[in-house]
């Protein structure tokens, strides 16, 4: 009997998807991932929940091992064409992800940024926009400031843009394209 890591199982993926959905619906709120991969990077939990052979993934900072690619069954793409991009948040971006088109803005990338820590750190953000009653504050450790500057450009003409999922190994949070980010 094949002994499979729980992150590949439907029950765990359902739980993790609901965390992702709540994260996307309430930007800046941090959610703890309940099940971590037994081995391999924590970002695998998010990827296992969302990806299959129908989408394209880019891993410009080589955060995944070749075994992980086999398990994900996902096809690899250059970063400008990928539906999902995973990056080390401490390294500045040097690419433009897919921003979608005016008739089809959903054909845009989801960026998954791995940072050192969520909930504390040197970057202090004040968030407003859909999903936030008044304002939400978010502290991040290990995110290059250029990500937020580039994001401003990427999301400036709604409905085009990118959606960010941030992850620190334990927790996730999200910044959809509609969230206004103010750096304090």
């Amino acid at each position: 009997m094949l002994n499979l890591d729980p992150i590949w199982m439907p029950d765990a993926q359902q739980i993790h998807f609901r965390l992702l959905l709540d994260a996307m619906a309430r930007p800046g709120k941090c959610h703890s991932l309940t099940i971590a991969p037994e081995e391999g990077p924590a970002v695998l939990t998010v990827l296992a929940t969302l990806l299959d052979a129908e989408v394209l993934l880019a891993d410009p900072h080589t955060l995944l091992r070749s075994d992980d690619w086999h398990m994900l069954q996902v096809a690899s793409a250059v970063v400008e064409q990928a539906d999902y991009v995973i990056c080390d948040g401490s390294r500045a971006p040097n690419f433009t992800p897919k921003l979608g088109t005016l008739p089809s803005p959903e054909q845009s990338a989801t960026l998954i940024l791995v940072v050192d820590e969520l909930g504390q750190g040197d970057a202090s953000l004040r968030l407003t926009g859909p999903g936030i009653a008044d304002t939400e504050s978010l502290l991040i450790k290990g995110l290059d400031k250029q990500w937020l500057e580039m994001r401003e450009d990427w999301v400036c003409s709604f409905p085009l843009g990118v959606d960010l999922i941030l992850l620190d190994g334990r927790q996730i949070t999200a910044l959809p394209r509609t969230t206004k980010v103010e750096m304090l």
Binding site: Q14, L20, L21, M24, A25, D52, E106, P176, R177
Partner: peptide
């Protein structure tokens, strides 16, 4: 099946990220 669910889930995340689309 899990592939069908994943597709619905991915679409739902984009739907939330682009309100009303």
């Amino acid at each position: 099946n899990e592939y069908a669910k994943k597709e619905v889930r991915r679409s739902t995340l984009k739907a939330v990220a682009i309100p009303g689309y």
